[in-house]
Simulated scan of single mutants.
Amino acid sequence: MQPEPKALADILLAMDNASRATARPEAPRLLAVSKTRSPAEVAALAAAGQRAFGENYVQEALPKIEALRSLGLEWHLIGHLQSNKADVAARAFDWVQSVDRPKLVAALARHRPADLPPLEVLLQVNVDDETSKHGCQPQDIDALADAVAAEPRLRLRGLMAIPAPHQDMARRRDAFRAMRALFDALQSRHPGIDTLSMGMSEDFVPAIEEGATMVRIGSALFGARPAKPENHA
């Protein structure tokens, strides 16, 4: 299924409206989540003007990144990163949004090539303290941020979170507000940070209203993912 340019235009308009409603000085950035999508689907969205794409898995992303290298796209890793794949991620991606432990900071810094710009880093925060979710605890943000800031091959840009998908949107807003407070506190210690990545297809408008500067949208752009065929073996 090819993404519809109208879907991109509609989402950008909704983002702009949400930003204007809160008198934000700049509109948030859109990260198109291209997990499971083909290079052709990504290329079609790029032709409509989208430049930044997010992938969850290193091995799935690599052939896509290589196939589309001539388009000059910006690639973000948004899924959990195992330390043993940090060397590949540090070379292939422009951003890693899922940094959540000191060991990963050291591995990414060690493997980021000197001929590339510093790797843009977001700290993933487990804002709802879910046992099934990755991310550092809020009380660990400062130490982890200091570790990133001390590495010349890395650039601290801010925070990322995947709040629990509560049906009650008010509870999601509570998580977004908590993340905004954590972001503001971190910005007071690291004034150069500028990115709070939160909000997806179902909740990007309230996320923006509560302070997101980047939203991660997949299905609303590309359409629903095709169902996996049943295994009758």
Rank of each mutant, 00 (worst) to 15 (best):
A224W: 13
A7M: 13
S197A: 04
A181S: 12
S201E: 12
S70T: 11
I141N: 08
A18S: 03
L62G: 11
F204G: 00
V88F: 07
L8E: 03
S197N: 07
A147V: 12
L186T: 13
K85M: 09
A233Q: 15
P63F: 07
A48T: 04
V99Q: 09
Q137L: 08
A178V: 15
E202S: 14
W75N: 07
P165W: 01
A161L: 04
P229K: 04
I217A: 04
S34I: 07
D146P: 15
G54W: 00
A23W: 06
A21T: 01
R69N: 11
M15P: 11
L30Q: 06
A43T: 08
A67S: 07
H76Q: 07
W95G: 12
R172P: 13
P5M: 05
R180Q: 09
R173G: 05
P191I: 12
P165S: 04
R69H: 06
G218W: 09
D16F: 01
L186M: 12
V125N: 01
F222A: 01
A89R: 08
P25T: 04
H232V: 05
E230K: 15
R180G: 05
S83A: 11
D194W: 03
T36L: 00
N56E: 08
Q97C: 09
L31E: 03
A107G: 08
I217F: 05
I208S: 01
A48I: 04
P206W: 10
M169S: 15
V127H: 09
A233V: 14
I65H: 07
I193G: 06
S197V: 05
V58R: 09
L122Q: 00
M160A: 12
A52S: 15
S70L: 08
A233K: 15
L45W: 01
A40M: 00
A147R: 15
A27Y: 04
L144R: 13
L104N: 02
N84T: 08
V33D: 02
L30T: 07
Q187H: 14
E74P: 15
P39R: 04
D168T: 09
L156E: 00
L108Q: 07
R24M: 02
P102A: 10
H76N: 06
L119H: 01
P5T: 04
F53G: 11
